[in-house]
C-alpha cells in the first residue's frame, strides 16, 4: 500500500497533471462537504478547496514519499477554513456566533481531521438540517431551495414557478418556521 502511495506521490512530484486530476476527482466533492461544515456556504467551500489544490500543485516538489495526500488535503483545507473564518470574524459578528454555536453543539471533533478521515464527522446538525428540509412539503421545499441554494430573489422564484410573490413569501415563512421548530433545542 505504501509502495503504491509513494509511486503515486512520485507522479505528483513530477507534475503529472493526470495524477493531479485523479486526486481532484477522488477528493474534491468530499473536501467541499468537509469545508462546508466550517464555512457553511458551498461557494466559499469550493473556493477554499480549489485554492488548496492549487497550493498542492505549488508545493508538489516538497512532498515526501511517505506523505498521505489525503490527510495533507484535509489538514490544509481545515486550516484554510479556520483562516477564512478568522478573517471573516472581524467583519461579521454573526460568523463568530455561528462558529461558537457549531463548536459548542458537538462539532468540536471536526477540528481534528483524523476523525473525518475515519468517516466519523460529527453529522448530527447536518443530518437534522437535511431531515428538516426533506420533511418540508414539496412545494415549500422547492421554493426554499431555489432561494437558499440557487440564491434566487422572491421575484425570480415567483416568475420561475409561475406563482405570486405573496405565495413565495408565505411558503418561505412556512419553511423557516418549520426548520426553526425542528432545531429549537439549539437555542436554549
Amino acid at each position: 500500500m505504501s509502495k503504491h502511495r509513494s509511486y503515486f506521490v512520485e507522479r505528483l512530484k513530477k507534475g503529472d497533471v493526470r495524477a493531479f486530476e485523479q486526486v481532484f476527482n477522488t477528493h474534491y466533492a468530499d473536501l467541499c462537504r468537509f469545508a462546508q461544515k466550517f464555512v457553511i456556504e458551498l461557494d466559499d467551500a469550493r473556493e477554499i478547496v480549489q485554492d488548496t489544490f492549487v497550493k498542492l500543485w505549488e508545493i508538489k516538489h516538497s512532498l515526501s514519499q511517505d506523505t498521505s495526500v489525503k490527510s495533507y488535503l484535509y489538514k490544509a483545507v481545515r486550516n484554510n477554513c479556520l483562516d477564512y473564518l478568522k478573517h471573516i470574524r472581524i467583519s461579521n459578528e454573526y460568523k463568530e456566533d455561528l462558529l461558537r454555536k457549531i463548536m459548542d453543539s458537538g462539532f468540536k471533533s471536526i477540528a481534528s481531521p483524523e476523525n473525518c478521515l475515519d468517516g466519523l464527522i460529527e453529522k448530527e446538525l447536518e443530518d437534522r438540517i437535511n431531515d428538516a428540509i426533506a420533511s418540508l412539503p414539496d412545494r415549500c421545499r422547492e421554493i426554499f431551495e431555489l432561494s437558499r441554494f440557487k440564491g434566487l430573489k422572491y421575484r425570480e422564484i415567483a416568475e420561475e414557478l409561475n406563482i405570486s410573490i405573496k405565495t413565495v413569501e408565505t411558503q418561505m415563512s412556512r419553511a423557516i418556521h418549520s426548520l426553526h421548530k425542528k432545531l429549537a433545542d439549539y437555542f436554549e
Partner: peptide, 16 residues
C-alpha cells in the same frame, strides 16, 4: 438571531 442561524446553517444541506 435564531432565525438567522437557521437560515445560514441550512446552507450545509446544499450538495455540490
Amino acid at each position: 438571531s435564531e432565525i438567522e442561524f437557521v437560515w445560514k446553517t441550512s446552507g450545509i444541506a446544499q450538495n455540490i
